[in-house]
């Protein structure tokens, strides 16, 4: 859905200064930028401007970012990157649970934001995962249920494999603890954080060259995990 002016980005933020610098920087990087000054306007703008990506501030004065994410996810899968401050930890996780794709924490550098945007746009462009995924020395063949590190096959338990597969199908995206627990263990297990920690630790021991300094499965502090993609 890209127009000639490059990918269309909607910035929803109530601070004029932040909108201005985002507009200038993103335009300079070839994005076609639209602005909305509050949640209500943002919801309308998503329908009218048909953006390829939404940058959503969590601290809007009228509607909470979580609620906007929820309402958007009722009808569109447009990538949503939320912008938070450190104090909004729980709101950030709630927004990711509600379906936001990624987040940046204020204050953020443009390099970081641009990288996140590129990754989200790429995922949106090819929504179905490749049958064979590889990052660094790790290769996962989803068709054959085959996992190799540096060409050597790794034996995983069914739960560990499910966990890895979930990460692979959302490679590059932050998955919250709740999302992982729901997808791998089922709807009743969202509170069982220790299940995830134990299996994640075992999985890392089998995959990572140095489990203490993981290079494939990255920890998002307090939020969840993310599988590194090759270009990062």
């Amino acid at each position: 859905m890209m127009s000639e002016g490059g990918p269309r980005v909607l910035v929803v933020d109530d601070e004029p200064a932040i909108r201005r610098f985002l507009h200038a920087s993103l335009s300079a990087h070839g994005y076609n930028v639209f602005e909305a000054i509050n949640g209500q306007e943002g919801l309308v703008a998503v329908t009218n401007c048909r953006p390829d990506l939404v940058i959503l501030d969590l601290g809007l004065p009228d509607i909470s970012g979580i609620e906007i994410t929820r309402r958007l996810r009722e009808w569109t899968s447009v990538p949503i990157i939320i912008v938070t401050v450190q104090e909004q930890e729980s709101a950030k996780i709630a927004a990711l649970d509600a379906g936001a794709d990624d987040y940046v924490t204020k204050p953020f550098g443009m390099g970081e934001l641009l990288a996140r945007m590129r990754a989200s746009l790429r995922r949106a462009a090819s929504p179905t995962a490749e049958p064979v995924f590889s990052t660094g020395q790790l290769t996962v063949d989803l068709g054959q249920r085959l996992v190799t590190v540096a060409g050597r096959e790794v034996q995983l338990t069914p739960t560990e494999y499910d966990l890895l597969r979930t990460l692979v199908t959302h490679a590059g995206k932050v998955l919250t603890h709740r999302q992982l627990l729901r997808q791998v263990w089922g709807a009743g297990y969202e509170g069982e954080a220790h299940l995830l920690r134990v299996n994640m630790s075992n999985l890392r021991h089998k995959l990572e060259p140095d489990a203490a300094r993981p290079s494939f499965i990255l920890t998002e502090p307090g939020v969840g995990y993310r599988l590194r993609v090759a270009s990062e």
Partner: peptide, 22 residues
């Protein structure tokens, strides 16, 4: 207070990092 103190810093950091990479 947190919001009011941080907002200008967000614009400043963002703008400078944008210039840096420009």
């Amino acid at each position: 207070v947190s919001h009011d103190l941080r907002t200008p810093l967000v614009s400043i950091t963002g703008t400078l990092s944008s210039l840096e990479e420009d």
